[in-house]
């Protein structure tokens, strides 16, 4: 019996007057990788950003329905959205380290959440960088600017930044779309490892990637959730005609 970490109920979202997500009902399993696929503009990023309420930053977004994280409604029961974001971390499509040192990048979230003890912070930064497999590459230059790293290293640093604050869920929005194949492979492997500890949701355009890394897959089209099932099943026997068309490259 799988445990569901995040559950949405009749979720609708509008940007101003234009509907972007329509009646989404999805249950994200715990400690597994869930991929969200779909053609450009279908609302994948928007759905992802519902889970950490990052859409709140955009004026004019309106939401109805329920989003439950561990049975708590994140729009009603969780009063402190910053606490929510501690539980739900995010890694972005556009690799975005801060213009600070490597160390400061990872320590940032810790300091935000009130960590004061220097040695504890150092330990945690160290552990997080090890977790993303970046330690050997950066251990001698922790105090260099993060922009001195390669794109793939920067993205792993961003992952370290996200997991340093020990979230329960990590959202990945097309984390590899700007990376070369080797960096991509490393990140996929990393995601594989991270699912032991975290619930992972990843948006991807890359079907092979979804097939490789995910346990469950959701397929979206124009704001609708068309199909959601185990990845194996979806790739072998899609239930919906539209999913099949997408998987066989008939559109998107």
């Amino acid at each position: 019996m799988v445990n569901h970490k995040i559950i949405t109920k009749n979720l609708d979202l509008w940007y101003g007057d234009s509907p972007c997500l329509k009646n989404i009902n999805i249950s994200i399993p715990e400690n597994a990788v869930t991929a969200i696929m779909g053609p450009s503009g279908c609302g994948k990023s928007t759905l992802l950003r519902v889970f950490n309420r990052l859409n709140d930053l955009i004026d004019g977004t309106r939401i109805t329905g329920k989003v439950l994280l561990d049975e708590q409604d994140i729009y009603k029961d969780i009063k402190d959205i910053f606490h929510l974001r501690k539980k739900v971390g995010m890694v972005f499509q556009k690799v975005n380290p801060f213009p600070k040192t490597i160390f400061e990048n990872v320590a940032y979230g810790l300091k935000i959440h009130g960590w004061k003890d220097k040695t504890k912070i150092e330990k945690k930064v160290h552990d997080s960088i090890i977790d993303v497999g970046l330690w050997d590459e950066v251990k001698d230059c922790l105090h260099k600017n993060a922009f001195s790293l390669s794109g793939g290293q920067q993205q792993r640093l961003c992952i370290a930044r996200a997991i340093a604050i020990e979230p329960e869920v990590v959202l990945f929005d097309e984390p590899c779309s700007a990376l070369d194949p080797i960096s991509t492979a490393k990140i996929e492997q990393l995601i594989e490892e991270l699912k032991q500890k975290y619930t992972i949701i990843i948006v991807t355009h890359n079907l092979q990637q979804a097939a490789r890394v995910s346990d469950y897959t959701a397929f979206m089209l124009l704001g609708d959730l068309i199909e959601f099932s185990e990845t194996n099943q979806m790739f072998t026997t899609p239930k919906d005609k539209r999913t099949e068309n997408y998987l066989t490259g008939k559109f998107g």
Binding site: R85, K86, N96, G109, I112, C158, R161
Partner: peptide, 8 residues
């Protein structure tokens, strides 16, 4: 966004 995403 990255800063908000870690809860700032």
């Amino acid at each position: 966004e990255a800063s908000f995403a870690v809860g700032a």
